[in-house]
Computed example of a mutant assay.
Amino acid sequence: MWAFIHKLGSPKWFYDISERLQPWFWAAAALLILVGSVWGLAFAPADYQQGNSFRIIYVHVPAAFLAQSIFVGLAVAALVFMVWKIKVADMAAAVMAPLGAAMTFIALFSGSVWGVPTWGTWWMWDARLTSMLILLFLYFGVIALRGAFASRDSGSRAASVLAMVGVINIPIIKYSVDWWYTLHQPASFTITSRPSMPVEMWWPLLLMVLGFYSFFIALTLMRTRSEILRRESNKRWVRDLVREDG
């Protein structure tokens, strides 16, 4: 286990292994999102209460799941960087934060669009919506802190601290519908209990969730590889690689 963690901390090893893994995740993302979106938008039955407006769930739920998962990933990467000084963890965190912010925005926007036919308004200071908005601000804070210091290491440490502290918002998001009065419906998708929707609706949603996660992994691998080349540009193996490609 420790040998694997040691290898994972090597920028060159991560660069090489991610090159082999990346195409598989791109292919999985394309296939899952294509099948899931066509199934969900064209073939899944309409909801008996919301009609066809419920179909935004196939974007809203995967984006919301991914927004929260990415921040948990940020916190874990921050802990690894702060405790074991593994540079690759900080590089991965740097590229994950903008994607997490984008997914949070998509979740908020799609939720607002969904709220118009469901609640009759674009926005309410609902517990779930408010805690997701706080998550977006946390992402912005993590991104801003990285560029707020003259020293990259200082910015990385400040962003890591905010990520580790801010992760407390994730359980608040998850349990907000149970802890407070909220108009937001309970979880539509869970892998630990029986689906609350017909299987004809649930299966395409599962495919979309898996597709979004595959997309996130593929994009993170690709952007982390670019970050490695940028930060390790003075290393011999990078110069040799650039020379071979040039």
Rank of each mutant, 00 (worst) to 15 (best):
W2E: 14
F4E: 13
H6D: 14
L8I: 09
K12E: 15
I17H: 13
R20E: 13
Q22H: 14
P23E: 07
W24N: 13
W24F: 15
W26V: 11
W26S: 11
A28I: 10
A30L: 14
L32R: 05
L32W: 04
V35A: 14
V38A: 11
G40K: 04
G40P: 05
P45M: 12
Y48R: 15
Q50W: 09
G51Q: 02
S53R: 09
Y58N: 02
Y58I: 04
V59G: 07
V61E: 04
A63I: 02
A63Y: 03
A67H: 07
Q68K: 12
S69M: 11
F71G: 00
F71E: 04
V83M: 08
K85P: 06
V88Y: 01
V88H: 00
A92K: 02
A92Q: 07
A97Q: 06
A97F: 09
T104K: 08
V113K: 04
G115Q: 04
T118M: 10
W119K: 02
G120P: 03
W122K: 01
T130H: 01
L136Q: 09
Y139I: 03
V142N: 05
G147R: 05
G147P: 04
A158Y: 06
S160I: 00
S160K: 01
V161D: 00
A163D: 01
V167C: 04
I168W: 10
I172Q: 06
I172S: 05
K174T: 07
D178G: 10
P186L: 08
P186H: 07
A187M: 12
T192W: 14
S193F: 08
M197K: 12
V199E: 11
W202C: 06
W202L: 13
V209Q: 03
A218H: 11
L219Y: 11
R223K: 15
I228Y: 05
R231E: 12
E232I: 00
K235V: 10
R236H: 10
R236D: 14
W237F: 00
W237N: 00
W237L: 00
R239W: 06
V242C: 09
R243A: 13
